[in-house]
């Protein structure tokens, strides 16, 4: 099964819609509740990162019998130092985004903790790609 979503940078009203849809689908498929919780955390954080940090993005999800693979590609500023970005507390979020309670620098660490496989690639000034896999 495949699912596709688009994300608009800066549009916080839409943030979480893909995660909400995927949560419902996984529930219907009877995936283990704990596993769904992890996937929802990781997907939400990746979704919000596109909204908060990039211009626009695409989510492509493939659900198989034993796993869910998620690819989030965006057009945006990219991440110059991925290891640094992965550190808890590191954030370049704008003041406006911080006032909303985002920008704690916990999103990428949350993704790391809640996925079985995670790969982040980025071209500075162009794009970021986050690829994650969770086994059921």
């Amino acid at each position: 099964m495949e699912l596709d979503f688009s994300i608009e940078g800066g549009d916080f009203t839409q943030a979480g819609q893909a995660s909400s849809r995927v949560k419902k689908v996984l529930k219907q498929l009877g995936v283990d509740a704990k596993c769904i919780k992890s996937i929802v955390i990781a997907l939400y954080e990746a979704e919000v990162n596109v909204v908060a940090h990039a211009y626009k993005g695409q989510i492509h999800i493939q659900i198989d019998k034993d796993k869910i693979q998620t690819l989030i590609t965006d057009e945006g500023p990219g991440i110059p130092d991925i290891a640094m970005a992965m550190t808890e507390g590191f954030s370049t979020a704008s003041k406006k985004v911080r006032e909303m309670g985002f920008g704690a620098g916990m999103g990428l660490p949350n993704i790391k903790k809640n996925t079985d496989e995670l790969k982040i690639d980025s071209v500075v000034g162009q794009s970021t790609t986050v690829s994650m896999v969770n086994y059921f």
Binding site: F102, A104, M106
Partner: peptide
């Protein structure tokens, strides 16, 4: 908490 990623990562059902 007022930090959304903190709640996302640590709050429970």
């Amino acid at each position: 908490s007022d930090l959304l990623s903190d709640v996302m990562g640590n709050a429970r059902e």
